[in-house]
Amino acid sequence: MKIEKIINKVMNENTYFLSNDTNLIVVDPGSDTKKIMDKIEEINLPLTAILLTHAHYDHIISIPAIKEKYPDVPVYVATPEVTWLYTPEYNQSHQFGHQDGLEDVIVDPADYEYEMYNDYDMDGFKFKVVPTPGHSIGGVSFIFDDDELVLTGDALFKGTVGITNLYTGDYDQLLNGIRTELFTLPKNYEVYPGHGPKTDIGTEKMYNPHFNR
């Protein structure tokens, strides 16, 4: 599996493009809609899904544009954040998006809700969805065992963790989820976060200051 990334202007959010020989998955389509659409066209593979690690506005802004051009591509989100896609107060666009020059972000309902710990196989993309809430109540991570990597959304970053002072944030819950769902992975697994550069499980277990005080 190949992973490519676009860093979006709003909140420097990472949009990931996962491709194999036949298909493409887009993870967390952020604010730079033209770049995202151009990258989809450049990769030029059928779209399997849009996967959301959580439903904060900076991770969902380009969903309408993708769905307009590719109406059959399904959107997946965690059950606790189903209503966030179309509720600006929950997805934080009403509070923070206006500072970025955005209107309230309202996205159509998702097509599917994740089944936690289910072994997904979507057009050859094999992964497991695990709950990593605390930054938001429905935060999840995607574990790709065959590729020895995990996409962690806004749970685990290089050298830090997601903020927990937003709606439904919970610091203790966040740390517990990281310990139980992510730090139990092999230390060589690469970590692709929702913001910032990639890291790996071993480095974060050893050096992340939130777990080594």
Rank of each mutant, 00 (worst) to 15 (best):
I137W: 04
F142E: 04
A110P: 01
D72R: 15
E41Q: 11
F142S: 01
M37G: 01
K67C: 04
Y117D: 14
K128H: 06
D119L: 10
N91F: 10
D58W: 15
H59A: 02
P46V: 11
F96D: 10
A65F: 10
N118M: 11
Y112G: 01
F125Q: 07
K128C: 11
V105N: 08
L52M: 08
K126I: 15
D72A: 12
L45S: 07
N23F: 13
F127S: 09
D108M: 07
H94M: 12
E42A: 10
T79C: 00
G101S: 06
T83V: 10
D104R: 12
P46W: 12
G138R: 01
Q95H: 14
E81R: 07
H98T: 12
P46L: 13
D72I: 06
Y70G: 04
G124V: 09
H94C: 03
P80K: 12
F127G: 04
G134T: 04
K69D: 06
I63K: 05
A65W: 11
Y76R: 02
T132Q: 02
P109L: 06
E113T: 13
D108I: 03
I106F: 10
L52H: 09
Y112T: 01
P131E: 08
G124W: 13
E115D: 11
T132A: 00
G30L: 07
G30E: 07
N23K: 09
Q95T: 14
D121C: 09
H54Y: 03
F96R: 11
D123T: 03
